[in-house]
Structures are given as structure tokens and as C-alpha cells.
Design a protein around this nucleic acid. Structure first.
Lengths: 222, 222
DNA sequence: TTGTCGGCCGATCGCCGACAA
DNA sequence: TTGTCGGCGATCGGCCGACAA
């Protein structure tokens, strides 16, 4: 899974620590987000904090819903120096060569049988360049989703006044991804120049189960 | 689940022993049908046979596929007298007051958009009596499936020459049950006079997993 | 008696510009 | 610039009798 696509789907508010960074683990915050209460070892008070080092970060996406999540492996490290420039959420992200655009689906976008109104900025900066000498200008755009599956859309510039639309292929995408008004769609042109597409569902999917392995933690506590 | 509907779905070749009957348990046959090899206790050679008494028989149907199966509880009983009239597969079934009819779906039956050709015998002996004074004779028939869900069909007697057909409602049933040509449908009028409907899938579903509990067996071996 | 086919009619899908926010 | 609407043509679902196996 392309980390840039992952970040675009997760949204600008989400920052991930780098491998090797020192971070603070909050059991209570963890428990509040977990679907089922993690079984903390007795030696670990839920209200305490644990200084840790990041062993690995894996960017993943749910097979069913396309929702993105990360698996972060932590190693308790009481001696770690908490460098605010390294591990804090305010750390600057890597310079991102990719361009992305997110739009919340309107009723008309999600309506079965309708098309998708492409904001001009998205069409002009993310999509492949359209041949405006045609009348009307039209092209097929291909976009890879988080699973690497390629989706095909008819992109047309028409109407009075002129606007960009996705028509053929859009309805199928909405149905397959089970999108509804309020969900967001993300278009991204990655460093390789490929067009990618992701989804960001509205709060409905707040059942984001936080699956948890406390192996390192318990090993350290033993 | 109505035992009569269960038997109609299972087919005439399937006979079940009654509670209290003496039966012979074949571990090898059991193992050959099981999805995962049962963990037999060491004291039980796979090639041996065990004389047992039937403690209980439960008639069940898969929630997803409607495929019927039974859970039979056996108690090892070395002293049991194997009465051939009681426990053998050749034992006469109880006098069955219900009338049932099974038909393998043709291509035309399963074709999306088509109806279902009802064999005359089924329409005249299983379905509610049709009012032939109408032109054409038509009625709504309701049929309960193995889960107790009621399905609604339009039953009409038309065409030249006249034949019985299910039209409206049939397509929905085929799609919901994911039926294809070669699968069979079972109509049954039970002792209470209710019309029931079941399915019997063709060999595709041979993955019928045999879930197994060896509790009684191991308890007896201990 | 009943399986398959083509005809046909109505419902839905989905592309379109008009308009207004 | 873009969200929503009504129009409308193409497609599809599904009911029908004809015909033959």
C-alpha cells in the first residue's frame, strides 16, 4: 500500500511516528479506542504512561471497507530520550511529492444513476491532462485503489456552464465501495505519476476495531 | 425446523435413526466425511466399530445455504442389542402425512428474468387449490423456508397449452437463495397444512463440513 | 406435459443541459 | 464554480404465447 495514498486517505490530521522514534504509550487512550478492552498485565496501571521506541509501522487498509489503519510495534524503552523533533505528533512530515484532493460526496454524487461532479482543481491538477480541442473534451481515466485494483471512469468536460464530470464507471464504483452521501473520495497522483483513488467514510464506520497485540509490553513487564 | 421439511430437503435416500436406537459408529467413515480430521482418543482404532445408543437427534439447516444437516449424539453401549428393525438404515420411516415434491431447476427456471415451470403434479397436490373459474386462473402462494421466512409467489395457469407457472416473486427467490440450474427446489405441505419450500443444492456445495464433538466418546474411553 | 425461445411492454439506469446557489 | 433537477433515450427485467421435444 502506497504510504502517500495511505496518508491521503487518513487525512491531514493524522501523523505517524517514524521507526526508531521515541513515543509515549498511553494505555488509557489505547483502551478507549479498542473494540474490546485490552488485557493489560497486572503490573501496568491503566493510567500510567510508558516511554517506548517504535520498532515498526505498517500501513494497511481494510479488505472490506478500504478504511486505512496502521499497525505500530512498540518496545518499552525507559532510557529513551524523547526528542520532540523525532517522535512528537508535531514532527514535520516528509516532503510529499504527491498531489491529492479529497471531496465529500454530495447527494447528487452518491445518488444511484448519477455522475460525479469533479471540482475544477482536482480535474486540472490531479487527473491526466484533458484534450480540450475535442468537443466535448472526454477521456478515460484509470485509478488504482488501496488494494491495487484499477477502476475505470469516463471523464467529460461538458454542460453550460462547462464542468468536469465522471460518468460511466462512477455508478459501479459507488455501488462496489458502498459509498453514501457524506463519505469522501480521495484522488491522488503519486510520485510514480500514477492516479490513485481512496475513500474516507463518514462517522458511520466508527466501529474501527483496534486490534491489539500486547506481546512486547507483557514481555517487558515479565 | 419441521422434521418433514428436513427430510424432504435431505431426500428420500437419507434415513435417520430414532432416539434410543442402537447404531454402529464407524470412525473411519466419520473421518472420511469430516472437514478436519477428528481427534480420536488413542484408545480408539480408526478401523474399529463402536456399538452405540442414540441419545438425541437434532434437525438443523445452515443459516447461509439452507442446506440441512443433523446433530446426532451417541453414547457407547457395548451391551446394546442391535435390533435391525430399530436402528438399521432400512428401518421403516414413520407414516408421513405430508406431501412433498422436488424438482431440479432447468436453465429456464434459473435464468434471471424467467419464471418457474411448476410440474402439474406439484401444482395440483401440493399448492393451494386454484380457482379455475378465473381466466386465467391465478393466485398468490406463500411458502415458509427452513428458517421460517415466508416467501410470496404469483402462481398462474396460462399459455397454450395450459401450464402452471410461478412468475412474480420467483426471480427474487432465486437471487436471494443463489440458486442455479441443477439445484433442486422442494415444495411440501406439512401436517399442519402449511406450504413449505426448501432447496437442495447440486454437488457444488460438497464442502459440507462435518462438525464433530467427540465428548461422549472420549468420556466413555476414559 | 413442460423446456426454450422471441416478442413486447414497462421500469429503471444513467447521460444530458438548464438553472440557481 | 458546482449542486440539484427534469427530460429522455437505451437498456434490462420480467410476463406472455408459440412451438417442439
Amino acid at each position: 500500500l502506497d504510504p502517500q495514498l495511505w496518508h491521503a486517505c487518513a487525512g491531514a490530521m493524522v501523523h505517524m511516528p517514524h521507526v526508531g522514534a521515541s513515543v509515549i504509550y498511553f494505555p488509557q487512550g489505547h483502551a478507549e479506542h479498542a473494540a474490546s478492552l485490552p488485557e493489560f498485565p497486572p503490573s501496568l496501571a491503566i493510567t500510567c504512561t510508558v516511554l517506548c521506541r517504535v520498532l515498526s509501522v505498517k500501513f494497511l487498509a481494510d479488505t472490506e471497507t478500504d478504511e486505512v489503519y496502521a499497525r505500530i510495534c512498540l518496545q518499552p524503552d525507559p532510557l529513551g530520550d524523547l526528542d520532540p523533533h523525532e517522535g512528537s505528533p508535531a514532527s514535520p512530515t516528509l516532503p510529499d511529492k504527491s498531489a491529492s484532493f479529497a471531496k465529500t460526496l454530495t447527494q447528487s454524487d452518491a445518488n444511484n444513476g448519477g455522475g460525479f461532479s469533479v471540482p475544477r482543481y482536482c480535474a486540472e491538477t490531479i487527473f491526466p491532462r484533458l484534450d480540450y480541442s475535442q468537443d466535448p473534451p472526454v477521456q478515460i481515466v484509470l485509478a488504482k485503489d488501496v488494494h491495487g485494483i484499477v477502476w475505470k471512469f469516463r471523464h467529460i468536460y461538458r454542460g453550460t456552464p462547462r464542468r468536469h464530470l465522471l460518468t460511466t464507471g462512477w455508478s459501479n464504483f459507488v455501488n462496489q465501495k458502498k459509498l453514501v452521501a457524506g463519505d469522501a473520495i480521495v484522488f491522488l497522483r503519486n510520485a510514480a505519476g500514477e492516479l490513485c483513488v481512496g475513500v474516507r467514510r463518514s462517522t458511520r464506520g466508527t466501529t474501527t476495531s483496534v486490534n491489539t497485540s500486547l506481546w512486547h509490553l507483557t514481555a517487558a513487564a515479565a
